[in-house]
Nucleic acid binder design. Structure first.
Lengths: 339, 339
DNA sequence: CTGAAAGCGCTAACAA
DNA sequence: TTGTTAGCGCTTTCAG
């Protein structure tokens, strides 16, 4: 049987409330000897306060959760590292939940997190559980959104300027002589997820704005499953004129694009230029290092967690929700042609 | 204020113990109407039982933790996925802790996990907190070790047959005409961590056994920091005769090796062959696809979690601890030469 | 079939 | 400066 505060009190010959005071750092009204005594007994007994009991009473767990769409996504893992570091520096525990972009999973997590009385939630949401998120946020469990903005949820949001990112990318491609640009994005037409919509929209707008040749077929809505992607690319290459550059709307998509081209024996950039949205660890070390539009993911994660913890500490008071945009950055490597 | 079991009882016009029965699926002694009524009230009120209170009383949290040395390590992330899946299938929650191979961090996690009354721990330990782990295991929080075996801790362990892995690797290199093989491993002489010791030992033994030329300088003990690694490689190449192949003792090491060689303009395998222990996602897509000795990481993670949950369910009864070895597999790509 | 009562381990007034 | 007391929200005998 685990040792409890009562055991400590008994062994020290004092009452448990004094021990409790000690545990909570209220030494002001405690004799020096008592304090010494308690500290010694605790060490001897290897006493560790039961966090469940404490949290039950205090109504706070000092634990927050990050619910992400996929831990395979390098952008997410970097974001998490930022969030994690900020937590650590501020004495919070972090629970990581991988919702796999599945609304049902996401909702299940929200429920168990709520039942575990988590203090706050950082989430890159599927956008399908807005009521649940709103009600959490309203009922005292602060929620901060990152990467994906959902106007219906009045919560702090940290994301990137998607239009700027696409603009950076397209201008870079143009500078390398590319005019026929295909854009690969996850299905977005009936998805509530904003980044893909914003990026696809920006692509369309900018292609028009810059007077580039356009084709419906060049806005490719597809999963990043490599078999499927492979077919879509074949279709694309069967038509004339073909695009000369492929622009992936996020890291996973670009990674698949690179692999599919490699498996087809197509060289980058000689046979096809490739540009990605989001950077990833291996991008510089591939056969052809990949040029990308990168988000400052680590900082964004830190910042999102900073806001979350601030909300928790301020008890989520009246402050209106803030929407913050970070600037993406173009990292030029070699996949769009030399120069 | 959150809704409690009392609110539900009151709204349903019954006592809270009946509601509790309902929550715990004990419908046997409950009228059908009561049952209906409760279910309806719960839905209306959006009642979610407080897991803290429940766990406090039941003395179990239905939550386990995985403490890993690094989430940047692809071997670990695959292992985690296996563990995660098994948890999910069995109704357990998983908390992921990244100890960063720092014994102090690890110990801190063990303490907070214990205080959170976690039901069990899966760990790839630094080997520096053996007493803590033993005492957890003995005092009712089952511990399962994976990847790293520590004889002093009598707990189930799931790991790979390291000697076999090194043998597979060395024989493959020999088959490609390599005889001067350098082995890159993290500092292990005074580290309690077994895999690196076993692998280094196996390297030494097998080099002797196969009558390969040996040199103290070819057993390179180094961190995988790229700057440092770069220096070590330069030193190695300054001497005659040079090795013709580099064997990385784990994924992170091999990844760094590949990057350092790339940055030096050395071609794989023409200028230097490379072989890795542990596979990783990008290994097949690099300039030269990397040949590796792979561990069945997903299965190992699943299996480790299976044992852990079994221990939890059986209340960690007398069963003697089991040590399981999985077989590694050679995945031939192109980094050791064509053939 | 349902309710009353005690208690899990801890905190927080309030008394002493 | 320390102890008493009353819960936090839930489960679990044990009566009825």
């Amino acid at each position: 049987m685990a040792v409890t505060i009562n055991d400590v009190a008994r062994a020290a010959g004092i009452s448990k409330s004094t021990v409790s005071q000690y545990l909570n750092g209220r030494f002001e009204f405690m004799s020096y000897e008592t304090r010494q005594r308690i500290s010694q007994v605790i060490a001897e007994l290897e006493y560790r306060p039961n966090a469940l009991a404490r949290s039950l009473k205090q109504k706070k767990t000092n634990t927050v959760a990050a619910v992400v769409s996929s831990i395979l996504n390098p952008f997410m893992t970097n974001t998490i590292r930022g969030a994690e570091d900020y937590c650590k520096e501020n004495g919070f525990n972090l629970i990581l939940c991988n919702a796999d972009d599945d609304p049902a999973q996401e909702l299940a997590y929200l429920h168990t997190l709520a039942s575990k009385q988590i203090d706050g939630i950082l989430i890159s949401t599927t956008g399908r559980n807005n009521e649940a998120l709103r009600s959490l946020n309203l009922s005292g469990t602060p929620v901060v959104l990152f990467s994906r903005h959902v106007p219906e949820i009045e919560a702090d949001t940290v994301c990137v300027d998607n239009k700027l990112g696409i603009d950076l990318g397209i201008r870079h491609l143009m500078a390398h002589g590319h005019r026929r640009i295909a854009f690969f994005v996850l299905p977005h037409s009936q998805s509530p997820v904003t980044p893909r919509r914003e990026r696809a929209q920006a692509y369309c707008d900018l292609v028009r704005e810059y007077g580039l040749p356009a084709s419906e077929a060049w806005l490719v809505e597809t999963t990043n499953d490599e078999a499927i992607l492979s077919k879509r690319i074949e279709e694309l290459l069967r038509q004339e004129p073909k695009p000369t550059a492929l622009f992936g709307a996020n890291d996973l998509m670009t990674m698949s694009l690179v692999r599919v081209l490699a498996n087809k024996g197509l060289r980058i950039p000689q046979d096809m230029a490739v540009l990605g949205f989001d950077d990833w660890e291996w991008a510089p070390y591939l056969q052809t290092p990949i040029t990308v539009v990168a988000q400052p993911s680590y900082e964004m994660g830190r910042r999102a967690m900073e806001r979350l913890i601030m909300r928790i500490r301020s008890k989520n008071d009246a402050m209106p929700p803030a929407l913050e945009h970070y600037e993406p950055e173009l990292i030029i490597r070699r996949s769009c042609g030399e120069r």
